[in-house]
Design a protein around this nucleic acid. Structure first.
Length: 590
RNA sequence: GGCCCUGUAGCUCAAUUGGUUAGAGCGCCGGACUGUCGAUCCGGAGGUUGCGGGUUCAAGUCCCGUCGGGGUCGCCA
């Protein structure tokens, strides 16, 4: 070992001891005589002193040290004198008086200072990720991520689960996200797919009698990125046999309680609250409602139908909905210009307009208030619980548009109005999702969750009569407005599975070709089973009150799924392609 | 695929809305300094304003294209 102690672990209890420490030069202060260095490792900072009278050789070299040089210092720990304590760092009561300085490696001037006051732009941070990773915030994220994985493994181990690895090179299946494909050299023209999730493998593990499985599994989806989505991400994947929905919910309640305890040292109220999908959509306009604050969506259909404002009444006549939200006390915080900006913004969600009223002296104040009688104004105020100073917003449109627009507006307003503490973890279950939805684009029914999800027992006979109303035995865990986990009771009856494939337009032949291994497995004694997968990266984000997934991944990719540091993806040699029997067909360059 | 934001010194930003030689802080280089801790003081270097084209007497600024980064809608069983 090159060191006896880390920089951060030294305290005044070490005073008088000879120690060796290693690390990066965080800053240097050269007084011509005395030279001071703040030495950094992932455990903290410690001040090193070079005194020309004590260590003339080391002092000479110390004058040449620069930011991010890697050094080793042998010396002794000394209490700082009266008035020399630095309260800004944990080791501020002590310092190391140097005996020997060893320069382990010089550094070029770094492109940015990892602990500097200026936060460089993310592109540069990603290009020099190894420098950025020295930043304490990023190290904190990596440490928290490790703790979360550790606590997860402990919890499942204590509860009799086995961690089993499943293949990365698998079979491409239709439905779902776009696959990342891997060409096979020994099977010309054939491809593996990287897993979008270990979904089918974990079901097969249940058929295989493993009974309780979990895995911290890497998953790949070739879809467009978002602030909370990376092309490769990590799931805490879980599956159990001989269980019902309730057992999964209880097991994951226990996991969340364990994680919050281990990571935050806090207790979370269990069982976690539950909300049906229908209630979530009605009250919050979202299947992943952020419930750290209220501002629920209120239906104003009756008032809208009766009022003299054509936009409202015609929407109701045409089968649409008029719903509103109340931004308490926000009337003076949003100018007309800002509201115009919000109006344009809800357009992204399909809303053609955004009506607003300020509640002022018990009446509505707005350019459109004149279309509402005193009676209707009062009805609106009563309906939304309006008080003077409140700002009311309304969207009149198709039901789905009112949900999307007001759901998004609710989140935005709450963030801007700071209606919650960002460190709060508000976790709940959303249950009873619809099983199938009609795809206008493909002109067919499609699985809302995935095609292996078991219908509610009571709805099993509705395939032919009213498939849109069938509810699934599926459940999402929602935290702070993020989908934090998703799962379902699986189909274990091959006849039902066949029926589902048939229903969503996968013909028997195709089902056999694509999913034959699963259908076959179900015919050889498949136990009833159910499972769930948690988004690990998102949980790390939420524990850190961060809203950028790249900040919780050591080497993340940009929005175009590129790695700025390695420059992946990249062209490959033509003979590599030849081995794989691949010819590229690129768009011609202009 | 659509919409929006963004690119100026190594880094973070500015440039009086089209008008002299593109500035500042930090960093970097040199010098001074024995208790600093975001050290201080003195001096210095550093720019094809992402790239290409256009408009104009004149472009960092306006227009078109393109590349990179970010946000978002679609997409993500």
């Amino acid at each position: 070992m090159l060191r006896t102690h880390t920089c951060g672990e030294l305290t005044k209890d070490h005073a008088g001891q000879d120690v060796s420490v290693c690390g990066w030069v965080d800053s240097y202060r050269d007084h011509g005589g005395l030279v001071f260095i703040d030495l950094r490792d992932r455990y903290g900072l410690i001040q090193i002193v070079f005194d020309p009278n004590e260590c003339p050789d080391a002092h000479k070299v110390a004058g040449t040290l620069r930011s991010e040089d890697v050094i080793r210092v042998d010396g002794h720990v000394k209490l700082r004198g009266e008035g020399l304590v630095n309260p800004n760092i944990a080791t501020g009561e002590i310092e190391i008086r140097t005996h020997v300085l060893t320069v382990l490696n010089k550094s070029k001037t770094p492109p940015f200072e990892p602990t500097g006051e200026n936060m460089p732009n993310e592109e540069l941070r990603l290009k020099y990720r190894y420098v950025d990773l020295r930043r304490p915030q990023l190290q904190e994220a990596m440490i928290l991520r490790h703790k979360l994985c550790k606590a997860t493994r402990d919890y499942f181990d204590q509860n009799g689960f086995l961690e089993v690895e499943t293949p990365m090179l698998g079979k491409s299946t239709p439905e779902g996200a776009r696959d990342y494909l891997v060409p096979s050299r020994v099977h010309p023209g054939s491809f593996y797919a990287l897993p979008q999730s270990p979904q089918l493998y974990k079901q097969l593990l249940m058929v295989g009698g493993l009974d309780r499985y979990f895995q911290i599994a890497r998953c790949f989806r070739d879809e467009d990125l978002r602030a909370d989505r990376q092309p490769e991400f990590t799931q805490i994947d879980v599956e159990m046999s001989f269980v019902e929905q309730e057992d999964i919910l209880t097991t994951i309640d226990g996991l969340i309680g364990h994680l919050v305890r281990e990571i935050r040292g806090e207790e979370i109220q269990l069982p976690l609250p539950r909300l049906t999908y229908a209630d979530a959509m009605e009250r919050f306009g979202s299947d992943k409602p952020d419930m750290r604050f209220g501002m629920e969506l209120i239906d104003c259909g009756e008032i809208a139908a009766a009022c003299g404002f054509g936009v409202f009444s015609k929407t109701i006549e045409n089968g649409g909905r008029v719903r509103g939200i109340n931004a308490k006390g926000a009337a003076e915080k949003y100018s007309r210009k800002m509201i115009d900006e919000l109006t344009a913004w809800v357009g992204d969600y399909g809303a053609k307009g955004l009506a607003f009223f300020r509640v002022k002296e018990g009446k509505l104040d707005s350019p459109i208030a004149k279309f509402f009688s005193d009676e209707h104004q009062q009805a609106i105020i009563d309906k939304l619980g309006g008080e003077n100073g409140d700002l009311l917003f309304f969207v009149a449109d198709k039901g789905s548009v009112t949900s999307a627009a007001l759901g998004a507006l609710r989140n935005r307003l709450a963030k801007e109005l700071k209606l919650y503490d960002p460190r709060t973890l508000n976790v709940l279950w959303v249950v009873e999702f619809p099983l199938y939805s009609w795809s206008e684009e493909d002109n067919r029914w499609q699985a809302e969750h995935h095609p292996f999800c078991y219908p509610n027992a009571a709805d099993l006979d509705k395939f032919d009569t009213d498939p849109g109303s069938m509810r699934a035995q599926s459940y999402d865990l929602v935290c702070n407005g993020y989908e934090a986990a998703s799962g379902s009771v699986r189909v274990h009856d091959p006849a039902v599975q066949q029926k589902i494939f048939d229903f969503i337009g996968i013909k028997e032949e195709e089902a056999e070709e694509r999913f034959g291994f699963l259908l076959n497995a179900l015919r050889y004694g498949a136990p009833p089973h159910a499972g769930i997968a948690l988004g690990l990266d998102r949980w790390v984000m939420m524990f850190l009150a961060n809203d950028n997934i790249r900040d919780v991944i050591a080497f993340p990719k940009t929005q175009k799924a590129a790695d700025q540091m390695t420059e992946a993806p990249s062209r490959v040699d033509t003979h590599q392609l030849r081995d794989l029997h691949i010819k590229t067909d690129l768009p011609t360059e202009a």
